[in-house]
């Protein structure tokens, strides 16, 4: 039995009221509750007030705006709705796949896309009961002074385990943030910082209201690949979002751009570099698979912050990348 700490809950029905309530010192936001509530049950924080976004219906729309060239997904849209939405599936198949692979159907019925973007970082030494953590004296993220993942390390390396964030980064998406002072739009690529204690540039008074994904302007193939201990419920051990822009709508066409984003390494997803060298090559050229897998392996170094040994996870990275690209090519 895991009890929540004593706290107050507000259930505003409009965004302005929610923003006003969020000004309460120490207040936290809760949308689907599937990330923050287990964490609070583990006493990772004891906020005096939770501001629930569950009754703000305005956050639940999905609107396609062809003129603006963008699909606007409300932050309160559930992961199930994201994965099943006809336009999301047609325009952004890798996003539909990622949203549909989060945890379990029950959690996807509750968890929201905005919540998945703002998922707290996770670590095998943090996401444990209070009692468990007390046995090792806590850590940088949980009331202690040391890091058990990187001995002597001064920076928290808890990992961002969101399935959707690497995909949103690969698609060039951005987030709309509302505060009492107005609205700003932040590219997902600039939203995250490499600090496990606080891995986003979100200010305390801001609410993510919308995820904006640019509509494709040319043919492309996208994929999301997730490796986890079990096929359901578990967070990813590794995750990779891939995007290949093509000159024409066939796999033998030349690549015009390649984007690969790897998750669960640290607090911030890693965008793999030196992929522009592949531009002009045919997508189905076997050298493409080899080159992408090599760069991923060279640039991504998993840590012992989630289950399974880091060297094993590192060796499995190119394996999953090769399989994902081969499947895209085979699908035509």
């Amino acid at each position: 039995m895991l009890r929540l700490p004593r706290l107050d809950v507000a259930t505003p029905t409009d965004l302005d009221t929610a923003l006003a309530l969020l000004a309460t010192p120490g207040a936290r936001l809760v949308a689907g509750g599937t990330d923050i509530l287990p964490n609070l049950k583990h006493r990772l924080g004891e906020p005096p007030l939770l501001v629930s976004l569950a009754q703000i219906t305005r956050l639940r729309d999905i609107i396609e705006e062809p003129q603006a060239g963008v699909l606007r997904i409300g932050a309160g849209v559930t992961l199930t709705q994201t994965s099943e939405h006809a336009r999301v599936r047609a325009l952004f198949p890798s996003l539909a796949v990622a949203a549909g692979q989060v945890a379990s159907p029950l959690i996807r019925n509750m968890g929201t896309l905005g919540g998945n973007v703002n998922l707290d970082t996770r670590c095998r030494y943090v996401n444990q009961t209070d009692f468990w953590r007390s046995a090792i004296g806590g850590c940088l993220k949980s009331g202690g002074t040391v890091c058990h993942v990187v001995p002597g390390g001064r920076n928290c390396v808890a990992a961002l385990s969101s399935d959707c964030v690497p995909v949103l980064m690969s698609l060039g998406a951005s987030l709309v943030m509302r505060s009492p002072n107005g609205t700003r739009e932040v590219p997902v690529a600039d939203y995250f910082v490499a600090d496990g204690l606080r891995n986003t540039v979100r200010n305390d008074d801001e609410i993510t209201t919308e995820i904006r994904v640019p509509l494709p302007t040319m043919p492309r193939r996208t994929a999301y690949t997730k490796w986890s201990v079990r096929q359901s419920i578990d967070f990813p051990l590794l995750s990779v979002a891939l995007r290949f822009d093509l000159e024409h709508d066939r796999v033998s066409a030349a690549l015009t751009d390649v984007r690969v984003v790897v998750g669960v390494l640290g607090a911030r997803p890693r965008e793999v570099t030196r992929l522009e060298e592949l531009r002009g090559r045919a997508f189905n050229d076997p050298e493409v698979i080899k080159a992408v897998a090599e760069r991923v392996h060279a640039q991504c170094k998993p840590l012992e912050n989630v289950p399974y040994e880091a060297p094993y996870r590192r060796e499995m990275l190119p394996v999953h990348v090769r399989r994902a690209i081969a499947a895209l090519v085979a699908a035509g």
Partner: peptide, 15 residues
């Protein structure tokens, strides 16, 4: 009508 987890649902939020 949608299956969800009662252990992660705040009672006051389902009024």
């Amino acid at each position: 009508g949608v299956p969800q987890l009662a252990c992660l649902t705040l009672a006051v939020a389902v009024a």
